[in-house]
Design a protein around this nucleic acid. Structure first.
Length: 105
DNA sequence: CACCTGACAAATT
DNA sequence: TAATTTGCCAGGT
């Protein structure tokens, strides 16, 4: 695997560190990369990560909603997260209070 | 070669 | 307190 842009590579590295049964947000990943405003770029990296073994389903937006679910398919990420023991709320959002995980420096 | 779009978030007005 | 605008990096058109 060649080293793609350090930014993408770094995002993938952090996402790969997300423990099962936990979820993280774009902002926290971006913040960990010293680019809190680059949350957009984080999502872009995940799109490029579709061909990888990255648990992108464990990455949700700030509201705990599955933004990328549309790119994958309706119900795909939800099912995967439920399979890991993650609880969803009436709005279809993950309970960040219970499952929010933050990359530790 | 230049402009717009894109799995978002935070700061400012 | 709420609504709006800007910032971020890369890729596609």
């Amino acid at each position: 695997m060649e080293e793609r842009d350090n930014f993408f590579q770094r995002v993938w590295d952090v996402v790969a560190l997300i423990p099962p049964g936990r979820v993280t947000t774009y902002g926290h990943i971006a913040e960990y990369l010293s680019a809190r405003s680059a949350a957009r770029t984080v999502g872009w990296a995940l799109q490029a990560a579709k061909g990888t073994a990255l648990p992108c389903h464990r990455v949700v937006n700030r509201y705990g909603a599955l933004s990328g679910a549309r790119c994958w398919g309706p119900g795909i990420m939800e099912d995967l997260l439920r399979s890991e023991g993650i609880h969803f709320d009436d709005e279809g959002c993950v309970d960040l209070k219970k499952h929010l995980w933050i990359p530790i420096a």
